[in-house]
């Protein structure tokens, strides 16, 4: 269920207050929006917390700068912020790919993003829950960017399909297609890990 529907009017009111010079409104907006944009960026960037923090900070900075000219009713604050964060994350992923390509010295397909290295100990040494989440992050990182973005917004951030369509600048049907393909892709990647992740016998 979309979790920002109720609060978004308040978000716009808070942003308007900030635009008029109310610093306290920035604190409240940060408390509301920063955890969400950080979580989204983290999923988009394959769990890289440092890069996700940079993206979240940059997205929030752009929100502060946009505040004076913000026209309520034009876009939802949260939707706008997700869009900015998605673009920033995509830029970083592309930059990461270019670096990786240079490192290898050869061409790399657009969606051949390197999977984040699993530097953590084996499943035996970890809690099952943490292992499952790490596996999800790895599986998400293996998806094509647009599928990953749609899946994360739908299933982890809880946006509705029309909201995702607005964030991604596509139609609702395209969103449905992306999320469906993304879920199939995740299921395929995680298929062989079902037992290791402790799903068998649950």
């Amino acid at each position: 269920m979309p979790r920002d529907t109720v609060c978004d009017t308040d978000d716009a009111a808070l942003l308007a207050r900030y635009g008029r010079g109310d610093a306290l409104a920035a604190r409240e907006l940060t408390a509301r929006l920063l955890p969400r944009v950080l979580a989204f960026a983290s999923r988009m960037l394959g769990g890289d917390r440092t890069e996700a923090e940079d993206v979240a900070q940059e997205a929030m900075l752009r929100l502060w700068r946009a505040a004076p000219g913000w026209r309520s009713g034009e876009a939802k604050v949260s939707t706008w912020l997700y869009r900015v964060a998605a673009n920033l994350a995509t830029d970083r992923l592309r930059s990461r790919r270019r670096r990786f390509r240079r490192m290898l010295g050869g061409p790399l397909a657009l969606d051949e993003a390197p999977e984040p290295a699993d530097e953590t100990p084996g499943p035996e040494a970890r809690l099952i829950g943490a292992e499952r989440l790490a596996a999800l992050d790895r599986a998400l990182a293996a998806l094509p960017e647009r599928q990953r973005e749609a899946v994360v917004l739908r299933h982890l951030e809880g946006l509705s399909n029309p909201e995702i369509a607005e964030v991604m600048g596509i139609g609702v049907e395209a969103v449905e297609s992306l999320t469906a393909r993304g879920k199939r892709g995740l299921a395929a990647v995680l298929k062989d890990q079902r037992a290791a992740l402790g799903f068998e016998g649950d």
């Binding site: 610093a23 929030m60 900075l61």
Partner: peptide, 9 residues
């Protein structure tokens, strides 16, 4: 983030 907000303001 809050320092950015204050600086922009």
């Amino acid at each position: 983030v809050l320092a950015d907000a204050d600086a922009v303001l």
